[in-house]
Design a protein around this nucleic acid. Sequence first.
DNA 1: CAGGATCCGATCGGATACTG
DNA 2: CAGTATCCGATCGGATCCTG
Lengths: 140, 140
Amino acid sequence: MPTPLPIAPIESPEACAGTPLGRAIRLLGDAWVLLIVMNLLHGPQRFNALRTMLGRISTKTLSQRLKALEELGFVQRQAFLEIPPRVEYHLTEQGQELGDVIESLERFGKKHLAGSAVPSLDTCLTDAHEASATETTCAE
Amino acid sequence: MPTPLPIAPIESPEACAGTPLGRAIRLLGDAWVLLIVMNLLHGPQRFNALRTMLGRISTKTLSQRLKALEELGFVQRQAFLEIPPRVEYHLTEQGQELGDVIESLERFGKKHLAGSAVPSLDTCLTDAHEASATETTCAE
DNA sequence: CAGGATCCGATCGGATACTG
DNA sequence: CAGTATCCGATCGGATCCTG
């Protein structure tokens, strides 16, 4: 029993905006947000640069997430009055601290999701096919 | 400049299953998974107990996530041969380490998402309405 | 009680087209 | 280049019904 963690139970994603952890989950329980933040950790990035790094993300999705992150004060948008236009996004002081979260994610990933220890992460999260896991435990 | 974090850029949620961090994001970039893990941190929980804690999650969604977590070896399912049936889910050794991630989420939330510092987290993540953020910066 | 199967509406997110 | 607006298909997830 490592750290008992006095965490209070929380409700669904939609309803749990009351507690700080709940809010964090609402915000960071989104793969796109995590990926964007991750890429911004390297330094400022331009809109299309991000788009490229993220593979196939639509402008819609990207600008949506960026706007949210901006409104929350984690990302700063900086537009240069040039032509053609240039806009750079970078993490704010607060946003930088998201690095800790990413870091803990990475540590976890490296430790437990590194090898092909799993049939296929995709398969798991996608369909609910038949699988054996490590064989369900029975008792009593 | 805290920790430069030598993290390599990653692609979209679907494609980035190659790197450990990518996998972690795929798995934990899901609010339900985070919430479930969070509640399991307290100790073993029964199916319907979890359902209640999570507010309005459907049996489908819940069993889906639990199955995924089980296949990945982070959750252990334990069925008791009783009647009425009883099934308990608990975190495995590996799953316990998800506590670190949750913890970092909580720290972040407490620090930056505590007060009403934000117009409304929901609003941000929901619609892409007009908002001013802290006023976009211009330069050059 | 635990959960699989199904139906179906709500939402998400990509592609496209168009503006500054 | 940096977006916004729109259309629309794919997916998610809740409600419901049913079995063991």
